[in-house]
Amino acid sequence: MPKFSDRVERISISGIREVFEAAGEDAINLGLGQPDFPTPDHAREAAVEAIRAGETDAYTGNKGILPLREAIAAKHERDQGIDIDPDDVIATAGGSEALHIALEAHADPGDEVIIPDPGFVSYDALTKLTGAEPVPVPLRDDLTLDPADVEEAITDDTAAFVVNSPGNPTGAVSPPEDIREFARIAREHDILCVSDEVYEYTVFDGEHRSPAEFDDGGNTVIVNSSSKLYSMTGWRLGWVTGTSERVERMLRVHQYVQACASAPAQYAAEAALTGDQSIVAEMTESFERRRDLLVSGLEAVGIHVPTPRGAFYAMPEVPEGFVDECIDRGVVIVPGEAFGEAGEGYARISYATDEEELREAIAIMQDAYEAVTAQA
C-alpha cells in the first residue's frame, strides 16, 4: 500500500468542485464563482502583443514583472490610500496561490489559524497543509465575522486569522469599524491578519475597507486577484503584499512552488489595472440587479435570504433535501456545510449568470422547495 502525507489525508476535494463535476451538461450552474463577462479587450490584446513580441518566452522575475507590480501598488494607493512599494508585491498564480504562500510562510505545525465559519473552502484546507490547526469562528446572524469572537478565539498558539470582505460564500461586507478592530487585534496580539480582498470592487451596500488601512504595525497581508475584479478567472493571476520581511518569506515558498506567475497573464493584468475601468462599474451594476432578482425570487418562495451586500453569492437558509432536489432538477447550488460546520442548513448560490437563466433557475428552485416542504 502506498503511504500518503498525513497533511494530504486531512483534506478532501472541494465541495464546490464535487458538485460542479457531478452536474450534467444541461444544468444551470449556480455553483461556481465565475463572472460571465469577457475579459476586457485591452487586457487580452496586451497578452497577445506580449506573446508576439517574445516577452513571454522566458521566466519573469520571481515577484513578477515590474510594470505589473507598479500597477498593483498604484491600485492600492488609488483605491485605499495604502502606500506599497512595488518590491513588496508578489504576482501569484491566482489568489489561491497567494493564500497558500501567505499561510505557508507564517504557520507551523501545532499553530492555530482562525478562520470564518462558513468561509471559503481553501482557508481550512490550506491551513491543514501547513500542519497548523484551523479554528473556525461562527459568523453573526448577518453573516459577518465578529472581531470580539476572533479575539476570544486567540490562544498562545494562534499564528494568524483570516478576514474576507466582501465574503465568499456569504456576500457579506464587514463595516469599517470591524475592519479597524481586526487591525487592532493583529497589532495588539502580534499575529498576522490575512485579508482576502478578491471581491473588493463588487460592493452594493456599504464600502470595502482593508485592515491594512489601519495597520501601523505591519501585521496585515493582503491577498487579491484579477479573477473577480476583471473577469479573468482562467488567467490565474493574483498577488500578495505585506511588509518586506513578510514578502521575502512568502517569496521563498513561491519560488519553489511556482517560480513565477504566467507571463502572458501578467501583461494582461497590468493592462487591466491601468486601462479603462468601466467594466468594473458595469459588472457591479449587473450583479446588483441579479442579486435583487434572486433575493426577491427566493423570498417570494418562502426562503429567507440575508441580503448580500457584495460579491455575487447569496447564502439562504434552506430546508433539508433542498440542495439535492435542486441538483436533481438541473440547478447546481452548493451545500452550506461545504464551507464549514456552521454552514449546515444553508446553501451557497452564485448569481454570476445572466438574468434569463437566473429567472429559469428561480422557477426550478421554487418547484424544488415546494417538493421538499411537502415531504416534511
Rank of each mutant, 00 (worst) to 15 (best):
V8F: 15
E9P: 01
V19D: 01
A22H: 12
G24N: 14
G24F: 08
D26F: 06
P40A: 01
H42G: 08
T56A: 10
N62M: 07
N62D: 02
P67Q: 05
K75R: 10
D83P: 07
D83E: 13
D83G: 14
D87W: 06
T92C: 12
A93C: 15
I101Q: 12
A102C: 08
D108H: 14
D111K: 10
T127F: 00
R140M: 06
D141N: 08
T144V: 14
T144M: 08
E151C: 10
V173N: 00
P175N: 01
E181P: 05
Y199S: 14
Y201F: 08
A212N: 02
F214H: 09
G217C: 07
V223H: 01
N224I: 01
L229S: 13
Y230Q: 00
S231F: 05
G234A: 07
E245L: 09
E245A: 15
M250E: 02
Q258T: 15
A259Q: 15
C260V: 03
A265W: 06
D276T: 14
I279R: 10
A281T: 15
S286N: 09
L293A: 09
I303P: 03
G310S: 12
P316R: 04
V323S: 05
D324S: 11
F339P: 00
A342N: 01
S350G: 13
I362M: 06
Y369R: 08
E370K: 12
T373N: 07
